[in-house]
């Protein structure tokens, strides 16, 4: 067992973990943060995407021990003071989900994309979400949801 200290969605946790524990299992089973999903065994689907120190990663392909000292944000940490993140609002407004299984990972990956490229073209949104598979929507409304969020974030910034 190894002791790790991590900050998840602003809360500090100190835990005893086995080195082989994957970050996604740590989040879901030790911290009961089940918004982060597991959709595959091959690191291809992106349902498990979270941010480690502000960078999007697949939590099924990262060990919890590797995150000692890190700041982690999951889908549960995206809304602020009961106010949905523009991406969450975008998925709601533009019907960016059907079953919703891929949505947490999709939103966390899109959040990283918008940080690097606040005004992406549809082409850039599609390329940026290559690591996220959706079996329901056909992606069209996901692209619209991300565009909605980008526009909303730009408008909020202009107003500030």
């Amino acid at each position: 067992m190894t002791t790790i200290t991590v900050t998840v969605n602003g809360v500090r946790y100190t835990s005893e973990v086995e080195p082989r524990l994957l970050l996604v299992h740590y989040l879901r089973e030790h911290l009961n943060l089940t918004g982060t999903h597991i959709g595959c065994d091959t690191s291809q689907c992106g349902a498990c995407v979270v941010h480690i120190n502000g960078v999007s990663v697949k939590s099924c392909t990262t060990l919890a021990v590797q995150c000692d000292g890190a700041e982690i944000t999951t889908i549960e940490g995206l809304a602020h003071n009961g106010q949905l993140h523009p991406l969450q609002e975008g998925f709601w407004e533009k019907h960016g989900l059907q079953c919703g299984f891929c949505t947490p990972g999709m939103i966390m990956a899109a959040a990283d994309l918008l940080k690097r490229n606040p005004n992406p073209t549809d082409e850039e949104i599609r390329h940026g979400l290559e690591g996220n598979l959706c079996r329901c929507t056909g992606y069209e409304n996901i692209v619209r949801a991300v565009r909605y969020a980008a526009e909303k974030m730009a408008a909020t910034q202009a107003a500030d």
């Binding site: 992106g46 999007s56 990956a109």
Partner: peptide
């Protein structure tokens, strides 16, 4: 290569 998350790691 892969996708953004693969390239981040």
């Amino acid at each position: 290569i892969g996708d953004i998350q693969v390239r981040n790691r």
